[in-house]
């Protein structure tokens, strides 16, 4: 986050709680986003019958999400090189609901009905006759990348593999087909998400607006249950930086204050609580996930926030 001016960065100054005005806030995104040239990232939507899940298998997409948009996701797959540990995991990268909404709502990505797309494509492939699975490769003991092509050719294939994703899918052809026939709207995604969880439509809106409010300030964001919060915030990519804050969406009790403040301080963080600037703004009338609701997600968040930490005395 935040311009490379060096020295300390005065977040207190830049993000005065009550005076949030979207136009006056500089985008603190590390990279200025430019959507004109790049095609949208296709977000594979999985498990449409249960809770819908967006899982990314394409490493190029993972790269773009992280480097360009500061979207982290959570790796949930087994790392085949080291399959007996849980510290370093691999694809798929699971995006959580706020990341999904943010990417789609900002126009960086679109949702794809993955299972139907892939089944239809497989059918088509099979109808064309001979398949080329290409899943047998040459594997050398040391680093395979260091071998020259000729050296590799001279050896017999000895390894059978499962790739992360379908390597042909980024053909122009594929993109058009997906966009046309397999796109899932944000509305449908949210509808099934809300149906399969205990979140209400108002909560989804309010929490998403919180996420957006934080994203605008350039933070990197992860889920926060490990620390008793809804989110954790990082001042930069968590690969390099310790997290700053634990975010609580609903702070309702002083007990939470004591617990949260104490916990945060013991792990060198603080607690951030967020609320609406004007509560009447909450037009909680619609119970349905309709177009109006989807439009309301795109509104500028009007939020105020406070940071809590132990005082060090008492």
């Amino acid at each position: 986050m935040i311009e490379a001016t060096g020295g300390s960065i005065d977040i207190e100054e830049s993000f005065k709680a009550v005076e949030i005005d979207s136009t006056s806030i500089q985008s603190n995104q590390q990279v200025i986003l430019d959507t004109t040239e790049i095609p949208k990232i296709l977000l594979p939507l999985i498990s449409r019958n249960g809770q819908p899940e967006v899982l990314i298998f394409n490493v190029e997409d993972i790269k773009r999400l992280r480097d360009k948009y500061g979207i982290l996701g959570i790796l949930i797959g087994t790392l085949a090189q080291y399959p007996q540990q849980n510290f370093f995991l691999s694809v798929p990268l699971k995006l959580f609901i706020w990341e999904v909404i943010w990417l789609v709502e900002s126009g960086y990505a679109q949702l794809i009905d993955q299972v139907n797309y892939r089944l239809d494509k497989a059918k088509e492939l099979q109808s064309k006759g001979k398949l080329q699975n290409n899943n047998v490769i040459v594997m050398t003991k040391k680093d395979p990348n260091s071998k020259s092509a000729s050296q590799l050719e001279s050896r017999e294939a000895n390894f059978i593999v499962t790739p992360n994703t379908d390597s042909h899918k980024y053909s122009k052809d594929y993109r058009t087909i997906c966009a046309d026939d397999y796109e899932v709207s944000l509305k449908d995604y949210l509808k099934s998400y809300i149906e399969s969880t205990s979140l209400s439509q108002n909560q989804v809106r309010s929490y998403y607006q919180n996420f957006k409010y934080l994203k605008k300030q350039g933070f990197f964001i992860n889920p926060g249950l490990k620390f008793g919060g809804d989110l954790v915030l990082y001042p930069g990519d968590p690969l390099r930086f310790h997290s700053y804050s634990i975010v609580k969406f609903n702070m309702v009790d002083l007990q939470d204050f004591v617990v949260g403040g104490r916990l945060a301080t013991s792990v060198k963080k603080n607690i951030v609580i967020i609320g609406d600037v004007d509560e009447s703004e909450e037009d909680g009338s619609t119970e349905e996930v309709n177009d109006e609701f989807i439009q309301s997600l795109a509104k500028e968040p009007k939020k105020m926030s406070f940071s809590i930490e132990w005082s060090g005395f008492g």
Binding site: P44, N49, Q51, L55, N58, V115, N135, T162, P163
Partner: peptide, 28 residues
């Protein structure tokens, strides 16, 4: 088996977790 489509991981996930009974969270 080359008569059949080899599944990449993405394809397998979308097939395996398409039903209600087996969820990603259970898999995790």
């Amino acid at each position: 088996y080359d008569q059949l489509v080899a599944l990449d991981l993405e394809f397998l996930y979308s097939l395996a977790f398409n039903g209600k009974e087996y969820s990603i969270e259970k898999y995790q």
